[in-house]
């Protein structure tokens, strides 16, 4: 019945859009103006990124002569220079290791903490949850100086992967718990009852039923934690030196040390961002789901 709905004849089309068939979305487009706006938005969004990528294919002379020009001829030396730079690979490796540790800690500890907060009835449950919610308000910057002292002096973890990954995980926990709790709450009670009738303990229920079922939620929080760690700057800046640095630090250093070599900076920056960009865009749905989860609860 609704398949044959057409535009109500009395409706004057609003400027910029005509109400017509809108199956599957809202009002359907096809309006040239909408495509124009979309193109402008896309160009403004991608412009700086594309410029950086192309800049890496140019020489500094080309860049100086015509800043807004295209590579002519295309040169690969900037990119090969970065790819044969052992520091680049060392930074990449550090970034990967720290992000993996952070993600693992966040996901395991996060789902464990979210489980009782979601599915146990106990005194102080909401209070405990509030501890994590309030934790969302703490920027790492607030605690950064004591954190620096704690890690470098008390724990002797300065300039190590763990020294960065553990605090990062701790700061990512609130978001994780806040996202995972409603997710675990939404799993039907009957599952738990059935498991109990079959003689499973609550811990057995957790491992055998809850963890497998909450896979999508854990992937989401895992991706968020990974992105956060991969892009982090402040904590690595204070804690990591020389060949323990991560890619963002490497990029920032390279750009200030080689400020005259603009093309080299573009190449370094491009290579630092492209793999992550591909991965994150592939995981886009998960990231959006996670952020939405945080928005909606």
């Amino acid at each position: 019945m609704t398949a044959v709905v057409t535009a109500p004849p009395s409706t004057p089309p609003a400027p910029g859009a005509e109400p017509r068939r809108r199956r599957g979305g809202a009002y359907s487009g096809g309006n040239p103006l909408v495509y124009c706006i979309a193109l402008v938005v896309a160009a403004l969004t991608l412009g700086p990124v594309v410029y950086g990528v192309l800049g890496g294919f140019r020489t500094n002379a080309q860049l100086a002569q015509a800043p807004a020009g295209l590579p002519d001829p295309w040169v690969l030396t900037n990119y090969t220079g970065v790819l044969t730079n052992p520091s680049f690979w060392q930074y990449t490796w550090n970034s990967v290791a720290i992000a993996v540790i952070t993600t693992a800690v966040v996901v395991v500890f996060g789902v464990m903490a979210a489980y009782p907060l979601a599915r146990y009835e106990f005194k102080g449950r909401e209070g405990l949850f509030m501890v994590f919610v309030v934790g969302l308000l703490f920027p790492a910057a607030v605690a950064i100086v004591p954190l620096f002292i704690l890690i470098t002096q008390n724990l002797q973890l300065g300039n190590t992967w763990l020294g960065v990954a553990l605090p990062q995980a701790a700061f990512a926990l609130p978001m994780t718990v806040v996202i995972l709790r409603p997710f675990l709450m939404a799993l039907p009670k009957e599952l738990e009852e059935a498991a109990m009738l079959d003689g499973a303990s609550r811990i057995g229920f957790f491992w055998r039923i809850l963890v497998p079922l909450s896979g999508p939620g854990m992937v989401t929080v895992g991706v968020l934690a990974f992105v956060g760690s991969w892009n982090a700057y402040l904590l690595p800046l204070l804690l990591l030196q020389s060949d323990m640095k991560t890619l963002p630090l490497g990029v920032a250093d390279f750009s200030s040390e080689h400020s005259a070599d603009t093309a080299g900076v573009f190449a370094f920056t491009t290579l630092a961002m492209i793999p992550a960009l591909v991965f994150f865009l592939a995981m886009q749905k998960r990231i959006v789901n996670g952020l939405q989860g945080a928005v909606k609860g």
Partner: peptide, 20 residues
């Protein structure tokens, strides 16, 4: 996807490109 690109870039990387 395009619109999402700047968000997933590290602030540092976006900053370095814009700085130039």
């Amino acid at each position: 996807t395009i619109i999402f690109v700047p968000y997933v870039l590290a602030e540092v990387i976006a900053g370095v490109v814009w700085f130039q």
